[in-house]
Write a protein that binds this DNA or RNA. Sequence first.
DNA 1: ATGACGCTCTTAGAGCGA
Length: 259
Amino acid sequence: MQIATWNVNSLSVRLPQVLDWLRTNPVEALGLQELKLVDEKFPHAAFEELGYHAVSFGQKTYNGVAWISRAPLQDVVRNIPGHDDTQARVIAGTLPTAAGPLRLVNGYFVNGQAPGSDKFAYKMAWLEALQAWLREQLAQWRRLALVGDFNIAPEDRDSFDPVGLAGSIHHTDEERAHFRGLLGLGLHDAFRLFEQPDKTFSWWDYRMLGFQKNRGLRIDHILVSDALKDGVQACQVDRAPRKNPQPSDHAPVVATLAG
DNA sequence: ATGACGCTCTTAGAGCGA
């Protein structure tokens, strides 16, 4: 079975592309970020026509996350419990599978703008709260996947310009320490379980022909728990939708799991 | 480089993303 993550940068604008992608990539579950849509406007009918269920957690103008899944998710949680937040950034639920329940956590991690800014401080606090909550989630659900737009390039090889961008947003030691903290909980970057082509990225700036020049970052990730690790069969970035007219600036990331 | 490009809210220009 396959699970995927995709920052669509407005579901209203990208809906036809998401539906097209699901027709050719009929994954079991797809985590979406940056819906920029209130829940009342979530296009449930369009996904139901394709045989999918959806749970959304949106807000006006910014942020917003959703899970699209073949089977309805159970025990759905919106945002990090106990962490006061005005921004809709997390949705989690449990997918029943033949191998047992699969906990699916989808996050639109904070961007953080620049080190030293208020937004960066918010990012650090948010990452702290996420890690504490995930520790609990992992204790409760052995089979867990954390997917989303992490807004962290975990290592130098995940950036088109690690020297020029050293210390800037997505590249700071503080952000990378938080990413390693997640790995320390017993999570594994599915993409790095396999040999991958150099300079594989999941986001490219709209400006300056970023995609054409492959000036990108790998900031969209799928992390899997210890119990899932050995069953991961593949993990890839699907660059194809980034070539669409009027694309999202992010490409989907897909992981193939046993079962 | 206070840039670029795209989306939202609102209807000309600001805020934000990454």
